[in-house]
């Protein structure tokens, strides 16, 4: 099976949305700020539900927030 890694554009999208803070995003999706930090650092892959919640905040389809790449 092909090895893949999940990347995201959360940090860039926050800045494009009036420089939204991590805390503001965390409150809108119902997690702690530390979880948003971990997602941006790609130290944590969110659940499907949380991924959808984040995409909804940015009003974008899921694949424009999270995307796959082949593992090196």
């Amino acid at each position: 099976m092909r090895q893949i890694v999940i990347h995201n554009n959360v940090r860039r999208l926050r800045f494009n949305h009036d420089e939204m803070t991590q805390q503001q995003l965390a409150e809108q999706v119902g997690v702690t700020r530390q979880t948003i930090v971990a997602i941006e650092k790609e130290q944590y892959t969110p659940s499907l539900e949380l991924a959808f919640r984040i995409a909804i905040v940015f009003n974008l389809p899921l694949e424009e927030v999270f995307y796959l790449e082949d593992a090196p």
């Binding site: 702690t32 969110p46 659940s47």
Partner: peptide, 9 residues
Amino acid sequence: EPEFTDERD
């Protein structure tokens, strides 16, 4: 301290 635990916690 955070008031709740989320899915990552």
